[in-house]
Amino acid sequence: MSDKEVRPLSPREPRSDAVANRRRIVEAARAELSSANGATDDLRLHRVAKAAGIGQGTLYRHFPTREHLLAEVYRQELTELVDAVGPLLAEHPPLRALECWLDHLLAYARVKRGVMAAIEASTWEDLYSAQHHRLDDALDELLARGRAAGEVREGIDATDVVLLLGALSRIPGPEWDTRAPTVVAMVVEGLRATPARGPG
């Protein structure tokens, strides 16, 4: 290439402070949603900006609307849930790893409820359809490891478990903290392999 030829511009990397600001905004919004049991009516962007230690102008540069912010919160929550599978399986026997993962899923479900309530149905459908297979894949991996270890019943797949966990969506917000763990405990017991009975 001669000195007179123009080199193509490389994509501009985000500034490190911009990346940090975006991360703080998402974390602050997740904390707000969690403390409000997913009630997005109480999610105020000025409070999120204050909690993140940034100005509202900076928040709007990253997320022009509350819907944009909530969609990113949902994606982050799902990513952390999916990424937890490997470490949990490395640390625990399969059924215990699944139980711990379902505890993590409660935090995800709380955020999901808030996002579903706050964004338009068509937008939610697009967001969910693009992401939900990741949840199914993570759950199938946990179930497969449990079956291989003889800890999880045969004949159960991710769709079965997701249908059971659909009960979480019907728990009223004020009762979430007491009823949601009970639902998960019942699901785990239902997944547990029954020891083979001996003769007699």
Rank of each mutant, 00 (worst) to 15 (best):
H68W: 09
H68T: 09
A167H: 02
W124I: 11
R47K: 08
W176I: 01
I54R: 05
H68C: 10
A121D: 10
G166L: 11
T159I: 11
E80G: 13
V19N: 03
A20W: 01
P174L: 06
G173A: 13
A109N: 12
H132V: 14
E175T: 14
D140K: 06
P64V: 11
G155S: 09
H104A: 09
E77P: 00
P181S: 12
L89H: 06
A39S: 15
K112I: 00
T159H: 12
R192E: 05
A39H: 11
D103M: 07
L88P: 04
D103H: 13
G57F: 00
S122P: 00
L143D: 08
S122I: 06
V188R: 04
R61A: 02
R110I: 09
A31G: 13
A130Y: 04
V187H: 06
H132N: 12
A36Y: 08
A49I: 07
S2T: 15
A180L: 08
E125F: 10
D126N: 12
A121I: 09
S122C: 05
L69F: 04
R113D: 04
R134F: 03
P195S: 07
Q76V: 15
V85S: 06
R192N: 06
D137N: 09
M1V: 08
P195W: 10
K4Y: 14
L98Y: 10
A138Q: 05
A90W: 10
H104C: 13
D103N: 10
A149N: 06
L59D: 01
R24K: 04
S169M: 12
L59N: 02
L78A: 04
N21M: 08
A49V: 07
A149F: 13
E175H: 14
R134G: 05
E5G: 02
A20Y: 01
A107H: 14
H62N: 02
H46M: 03
N21Y: 06
A97R: 07
K4M: 11
L45K: 01
V187R: 10
E189F: 02
S10T: 09
A18E: 05
E13S: 12
R192Q: 13
A31W: 13
A196L: 14
V184K: 00
A149C: 11
C100V: 09
A18S: 13
W101R: 02
L168G: 05
A121Q: 13
A180T: 06
R44T: 11
A18T: 02
E13I: 08
L78S: 01
A71K: 02
K112G: 02
A118S: 14
E154V: 09
D137L: 11
P199R: 13
A167E: 07
A51E: 04
R113Q: 09
A20T: 01
S129M: 13
T194I: 14
H132F: 12
L45I: 07
E67A: 15
R192K: 15
H133W: 10
E80P: 03
A158P: 10
E13V: 07
R75I: 01
V188C: 05
A109V: 12
R197P: 15
L69T: 01
A29F: 01
G114Q: 11
A158Y: 00
A51M: 01
G57W: 02
A18Y: 03
L59S: 09
Y128M: 00
Q131V: 03
H62I: 00
I156F: 08
W124G: 07
Q56F: 05
E27V: 03
P93S: 15
Y128H: 14
L81P: 03
